[in-house]
Amino acid sequence: MLRPYLSLASGVMLLVSANVYAQGEADFSKAIELTAGHEELDIKNNRLLLTDNVTVKQGTLEIKADRVEALRNADQQADTFIAEGNPATYTQQLDDGSTISAQADRITYYQAREVLELVGNAQVSQGSSRSSAQIITYDLAQQTVSASGEGSENNRVTTIFTPPKKKKDDKNGSNN
């Protein structure tokens, strides 16, 4: 029973379900590498706590935070990763080559549900668009984003679409 925990603490390599494949498909079949200045393993409570400049990498997926907590489920698999920072950040290269990035006070990755939940000053950016809200839920498999202003002063969600820069030829209003 102690063996899975020791390999977690010493190797700090966790596998995430390979059925998460809607974005960054290759990333989700790779091991997760966690690095930090300090690590504490609580065997009794199935909990690994990393602090001091934490980085979580899995292929092109990268989360940076001040603190990351990894929790194991009843099957002894790392199932939930909670990253906290000022802010915690997430980036990943998508299959089409574009990059998605996010930041929040807390980013929780629910591995079994294939969901990222961003809470507190949350923002998601892709291309020229950016959404901000108090809570943003990003379903990795379905590639859907749900945002809520819940808990914020004005309970609003903001999305910004930046138009492309005009080419020099378009300066005079030509529509060729």
Rank of each mutant, 00 (worst) to 15 (best):
M1C: 09
M1L: 12
L2E: 15
P4A: 01
Y5H: 07
L6S: 15
L8G: 14
M13T: 08
V16S: 15
S17Q: 00
V20W: 06
V20S: 07
A22Y: 12
G24S: 10
E25M: 15
A26V: 14
A26P: 05
E33M: 10
L34Y: 03
A36P: 06
L41A: 11
D42C: 06
K44P: 02
L50H: 00
L50T: 04
T51Y: 02
Q58W: 01
G59K: 06
L61P: 13
E62V: 15
I63W: 02
I63L: 09
K64D: 10
D66M: 05
E69V: 14
A74D: 12
D75W: 01
D75A: 04
Q77L: 05
A78E: 12
F81S: 03
E84C: 04
N86F: 10
A88T: 00
A88H: 11
Y90N: 08
T91P: 05
T91F: 07
Q92Y: 04
Q93H: 06
D95I: 11
S101T: 14
Q103M: 12
D105N: 14
R106I: 09
I107D: 01
I107G: 03
T108S: 06
Y110W: 09
Y110I: 07
A112Q: 02
E114Y: 12
V119S: 15
V119L: 14
G120E: 11
G120T: 10
N121H: 11
N121R: 15
Q123S: 13
Q123A: 07
Q126W: 06
Q126S: 02
S128M: 10
S128C: 13
S129M: 13
S131Y: 00
S131Q: 02
A133M: 15
A133D: 11
Q134I: 10
Q134L: 08
I136D: 02
L140K: 13
Q142Y: 05
V145E: 05
A147Y: 02
S148E: 08
G149Q: 01
G149H: 04
G149K: 07
G151T: 10
G151N: 13
S152V: 03
N155E: 09
V157N: 05
D170A: 15
N172P: 00
N172D: 07
G173L: 10
G173R: 12
S174Y: 11
N175T: 13
